[in-house]
Computed example of a mutant assay.
Amino acid sequence: MDFPRHHGCNGRLPPEALELEITENIALGREDGTLSPLKALRAKGVGIAFDDFGTGYASLSYLTRYPLTRIKIDRSFVQKIDLQSASEDTAIVRSIIVMGRNLGLEVIAEGVETTAQADFLRSEGCHEMQGFLFSKPLPKEMFEKFLVSSSREKTKTAIEASRLAG
């Protein structure tokens, strides 16, 4: 895969910049055919993520057998979180976050649509999120503009915070 030279990568995208997402159902029952190639990709630096985690029928032992770097909490669990969520509605999300952390995996929550969901996830230690709260899917050109404006906003916020602290 070619990568624009102005990014300092000698014209090549480094393997560490890639992440392959697989669903539990793809892995389920295909361990002989998927495990070896995934381990080879991981050895080269490619990240491996279980997408839609918690919706398949894979056993938890898959989390230790597969060379994972990240698990993605399925949106169906995130959607149950609101300001008045019962503990049973948040228990699975809490458990996935703690389990991921204990296994040394990064955890990302999918389908975040409200600030209440984002606040809950942050308070539980999940700091990576995706969903309509942040942006709808964007074409490349609009995504680049979104990144630039987001970067400017973060810089502005950091400057203001340092002024208040100093």
Score class of each variant (00 low, 15 high):
L41T: 06
E144C: 07
E141R: 03
F50Q: 04
G56D: 09
S87K: 12
R163F: 04
A109S: 13
H127E: 14
I159A: 12
R30E: 15
S150K: 14
G45T: 12
Q117I: 08
H6L: 03
S61F: 01
I71H: 07
T90R: 11
G56C: 02
A58W: 00
D32Y: 08
R5C: 04
F132W: 15
E16A: 07
P4R: 02
P14T: 14
L63Q: 00
F143R: 01
H7M: 09
I81D: 09
E128C: 04
A58R: 03
R65M: 09
T155S: 10
D2P: 13
R70S: 07
R94K: 14
I108L: 15
K44Y: 03
Q79T: 08
S95A: 02
L20H: 14
N102W: 02
Y57D: 05
F143K: 02
G131K: 05
I97E: 02
N25M: 05
Q130H: 04
T157V: 09
A27V: 08
I71W: 00
F120T: 14
D32A: 06
L83R: 14
E153L: 15
Q130P: 03
G100A: 01
G111W: 00
T115I: 06
F146S: 06
E19T: 15
R42T: 04
A17I: 09
V98E: 13
E113S: 10
S149T: 11
E113C: 04
K136Y: 09
P14R: 09
T23N: 05
R122W: 06
E106S: 15
L35R: 15
G56A: 13
R70N: 08
M99N: 03
K80Q: 15
S151A: 15
T155I: 10
V78G: 08
L83V: 12
N102C: 01
S61H: 05
G33N: 14
L147V: 11
T114G: 13
R94I: 03
G54W: 00
A109G: 15
M129W: 05
L35H: 08
S87V: 12
K136F: 06
K154I: 14
F50I: 13
M1C: 06
A43Q: 15
E141L: 01
C126V: 07
H127W: 05
T34V: 15
G111C: 10
F77W: 02
Y57E: 11
P139K: 03
Q130R: 03
L41Q: 08
Q84M: 11
K145V: 12
G131P: 10
M129E: 14
S95L: 01
L83F: 03
Q79N: 13
E31L: 06
G29K: 13
A27C: 09
I71F: 00
H6D: 02
S162Y: 10
S76W: 00
A43E: 15
R12G: 02
E16T: 11
G8H: 14
I81K: 14
C126G: 13
E110V: 10
S87Q: 09
S162R: 14
A109M: 11
M99D: 02
P15E: 04
E128Y: 08
H6P: 00
E153F: 11
V98Y: 03
L38S: 07
R42L: 00
F132P: 04
D2H: 12
D119R: 08
L41C: 05
F132K: 05
R12Y: 05
D32P: 04
